[in-house]
Write a protein that binds this DNA or RNA. Structure first.
Ligand SMILES: NC(=O)c1ccc[n+]([C@@H]2O[C@H](COP(=O)([O-])OP(=O)(O)OC[C@H]3O[C@@H](n4cnc5c(N)ncnc54)[C@H](O)[C@@H]3O)[C@@H](O)[C@H]2O)c1
Ligand SMILES: NC(=O)c1ccc[n+]([C@@H]2O[C@H](COP(=O)([O-])OP(=O)(O)OC[C@H]3O[C@@H](n4cnc5c(N)ncnc54)[C@H](O)[C@@H]3O)[C@@H](O)[C@H]2O)c1
Lengths: 243, 243
DNA sequence: TATATATCGATATATAGTTCTCGATAGATG
DNA sequence: CATCTATCGAGAACTATATATCGATATATA
């Protein structure tokens, strides 16, 4: 969760001051690199929820939205929302709030969701098929461009409109299309092997839906999406909500 | 300043993943209620990962495991692991570590996963079907006992070995079986309505896979499982891992 | 034009979470 | 038997995140 810093950090606050003063009012939708750096994980995780609501409001014709409104619909404190939105570099106006379209553009740009990133999916089983069929990804800057599996019965078939290819085809495919993102939905026993192949294919980010902690070289980012985590929290809260 | 000494990680490349991870046989442990209360969310989220690894080790015949080993395979600090395990009420012994079977039982008991909780699933679409077919839930103390949908073409059919029932059947079904947990996998537009019905059916905990912030009365716990959150973190880290 | 007020944005405090430090201990080693 | 050592467990120190406070400001309203 917390990457161990290789370098001994020198001045904690020394050079963090001047980029803030500069302001660098970037054209809407271009977050300053400094701001991006200091965005905490907790903040990043909330941004998609704002985005989801902002798109709804945009569809309803709203031009402005206040942090207060964003907060109340998500059961958050308005202060948190304003702090989160600050990392995108967008400023609101008193009594009105933030411009909806501007905010959407800024959050998308911050997350890199303004251009669709192509990805490959490995493991066209129960979960893989569901993800292939999920149309919501286009709102999240993701497009699954290729599907791969080791099952001879699956290879060559079409699933959710995608051609399922054999595993050896993965590296050339990824290299040819310049794909750097991989979605991993194979069984537990095959997870490490499939991840290794992804790395050899030049994948730099793995979205790991298996409950396996992958052994991966530095430079490759792994995001583990473990259902058990959420269920654990739910179970725990259920057991102690009434007491 | 003090140079951070490189921690000599006893890095056992134990990617020998046993596909047959059994071991759901647990003579129930008993966590103390006080410890349960003060468990933080961050800790609770890590427990399933320990559990997963412990089951593998159990399958390989290990009798003891040290916090150091648990930590290194998950890229965590040993201190965190020991602190996390402390909430289960289990004590380790110096130089040996923790007894594997004892730990498994304790974590399961802590999360309430020693007895399977029955749940209903609403929305037998792409994702709902995948979840219905997921065999891993039996290791997480969950059993989806009923599946519901509003689509007349689906009602009455069998999906993943379950009979799909109509929505009006949900309240009597849940009440009759004493089900208090609901899995929500309907489209965005139907999420609130379906959640309302769940609440009327006596559901106390909703595992919400839609990106909708549900309006729910107090006393009902909602765990939102938003894919976009994880993807946001991945996107963000990818954009700033090399810089 | 003057006043009221919802909202922003910055700073300060509180809480949760992580990392550091160190003494204690049970088993290994000789 | 004496010593060594990996590990545990507890508390302190540090960091990240959440919450509270407050002045500044742009718009609405009188
Ligand atoms: N189904 C779910 O709802 C769900 C939920 C949470 C987590 N997961 C995890 O997602 C993963 C997949 O689950 P699933 O239910 O879809 O399993 P599945 O068995 O339905 O699908 C796995 C797919 O991977 C393919 N595969 C197997 N070995 C492979 C290899 N070496 N290379 C490439 N492809 C290979 C199989 O042919 C199959 O199509 C598992 O690790 C599971 O723990 C699934
Ligand atoms: N498919 C994915 O991989 C994926 C990933 C992340 C999130 N989600 C979320 O999960 C939800 C479901 O996604 P999906 O891809 O499975 O959609 P889907 O359309 O395949 O399935 C939805 C199912 O819900 C049923 N339904 C519709 N209205 C209903 C109602 N009022 N009451 C009961 N059932 C109703 C439909 O008949 C259908 O069977 C969506 O909210 C989506 O955003 C899906």
């Amino acid at each position: 969760m917390k990457a161990k810093p290789q370098i001994v950090k020198a001045g904690p606050r020394s050079q963090a001051i001047d980029p803030l003063l500069q302001g660098a009012i970037t054209p809407a939708g271009t977050p300053s690199p400094e701001a991006v750096q200091k965005a905490g994980a907790a903040c990043v995780r909330r941004l998609p929820a704002y985005l989801q609501l902002l798109r709804v409001l945009q569809g309803e014709g709203h031009e402005h939205v206040s942090g207060t409104v964003l907060a109340s619909t998500h059961n958050l404190e308005p202060v948190i929302v304003r702090k989160d939105l600050a990392v995108t570099g967008i400023s609101g106006t008193p009594r009105l709030g933030f411009r909806v379209t501007e905010l959407i553009a800024a959050i998308e740009a911050f997350l890199g969701w303004n251009n669709q990133t192509k990805a490959v999916l490995v493991g066209v089983g129960n979960l893989g098929t569901a993800l292939l069929g999920y149309r919501g990804f286009e709102n999240l800057g993701l497009r699954i461009a290729g599907a791969f599996d080791s099952d001879p019965k699956l290879i060559g078939t079409w699933v959710q409109g995608r051609h399922v290819q054999s595993m050896p085809k993965l590296p050339p495919f990824a290299r040819r299309l310049g794909i750097t993102l991989g979605v991993l939905t194979v069984p537990v026993a095959a997870a490490q092997e499939a991840a290794d192949l992804m790395v050899r294919a030049g994948i730099l980010g793995i979205w790991n839906f298996t409950p396996v902690k992958l052994q991966i070289p530095d430079g490759v980012v792994v995001q583990k999406e473990d259902l058990a985590e959420g269920l654990a929290v739910l179970s725990h809260r259920l057991r102690h909500s009434r007491s």
